[in-house]
Design a protein around this nucleic acid. Structure first.
Lengths: 211, 211
DNA sequence: TTTTCAATCGCACAAAAGTAGTAATCTGGA
DNA sequence: TCCAGATTACTACTTTTGTGCGATTGAAAA
């Protein structure tokens, strides 16, 4: 095994696919398959010992699914590079996988050459995925920073007051921070509540965070 | 212009790059450059009239920068497909661009052939970007669903109570919802505050949302 | 079996927050 | 110039919340 060889582990319950992948990897210069598993439990037991560079993970498997397996593996090996290799391209599966700790998301229809490239990219700090998958991630990402419409008609000062409210400050603490009287803070809050159509600090903070 | 021709607009302040891009696009079968702009203002005025399929947008430009330009364009044309084309690969610029409404993020060092492919992908609902850029987006995405450690030692019932607190419910409303007495809710809250080391509902809700 | 802990309920008091009404300045537009 | 709205501030009152001190039940763990 040369310095540049990438070691790979495969977790996949279908024998044909698993064997096909192993053959592809071992038959390619610069790649070496060091572990094959047909279920999450086995992978969870042996991957921490094998310490492969990258893991190809299926989602649908008996007992422990791929997403659960990733979560458990990441606890032991936070730096382990994992990419999903699945037939599913629905948002749910994609988001859960990435949040569980996967860095890449590949479809099984990915041609062999592209798959080897993807393993390279994953090992070199990239997140291999099709541009269609990337779009779903980008859209989810865009939603996190969306709206703001709830608080947009607040005045600058009201925004400021609300921001301290959202830090858990009490009236007096806000007053002291901004060098104004508690009564002024109360007046601002009343106006903020009016504009946001809420009746408590918690509701106001919820709108502040777009929850 | 055939049915399959993709119309492109370019917003880029550097003459050489702008002209080079226009030449590349017009010199390629299936692509047509319908507008070139050296600043955001001009683009904002003419792009809504030209209605190109995709827009290549630079970030650093005099007066109105590319990110501001995207925000303004997206208000008028929410379905417009825009990709950044820039030298910057820092997180800040990437996230701001995507949140402003860009779907793709390409670097200027992208080779011409790849650039044309990326325009295709963008037009077909993908989000073209290198796997390195994708990794940054994935990491940001992972952080949104991270932690949970703050509230993990709460009992199931306490979690439930806290979840209602985080919806802005008052003691009485929680009590009525769960068919328990207000006093019980208060007891739970006292225990929750103790475990989370907070002294107010707002602080508790903040921890609940990992803020 | 004893102990621990989650879940339930109560009382009392203090602190904080919410509601209502009013009003003085100041500032940027129409 | 005049006005709307932003910012400041006060009094008075009600409601909600936070805290201290108990207490019972049941289930699970030691």
């Amino acid at each position: 095994m040369t310095m540049n060889t990438i070691t790979v582990a495969i977790v996949e319950d279908l024998d044909d696919i698993r064997n096909g992948l192993a053959a592809l990897i071992n038959g390619s210069e610069g790649y070496r398959c060091v572990g094959v598993f047909s279920n999450g439990e086995d992978a969870l037991r042996d991957v921490p010992v094998l310490k492969p560079d990258v893991v190809l993970m299926d989602i649908d498997m008996p007992k422990m699914n791929g997403i659960e397996c990733i979560k458990a593996l990441k606890v032991q090996l936070p730096a382990l590079q994992i990419t999903m290799l699945t037939v599913f391209e629905d948002d749910e599966k994609i988001f859960r996988s990435l949040q569980a700790g996967a860095s890449g998301y590949l479809l099984k229809k990915t041609p062999p050459v592209k798959l080897l490239e993807a393993i390279q990219e994953l090992h070199h700090g990239g997140s291999p995925m099709s541009s269609q998958i990337a779009r779903k991630v980008v859209q989810a990402f865009q939603q996190t920073g969306e709206s703001k419409k709830q608080t947009e008609n607040l005045s600058p000062r009201e925004h400021e007051i609300l921001s301290y409210l959202a830090k858990g400050y009490r009236y007096k603490e806000i007053a002291d921070t901004l060098f104004i009287s508690v009564e002024t803070v109360r007046t601002h809050l009343r106006n903020i509540y009016e504009k946001l159509q809420v009746r408590s600090r918690t509701e106001a903070v919820l709108k502040y965070f777009n929850k």
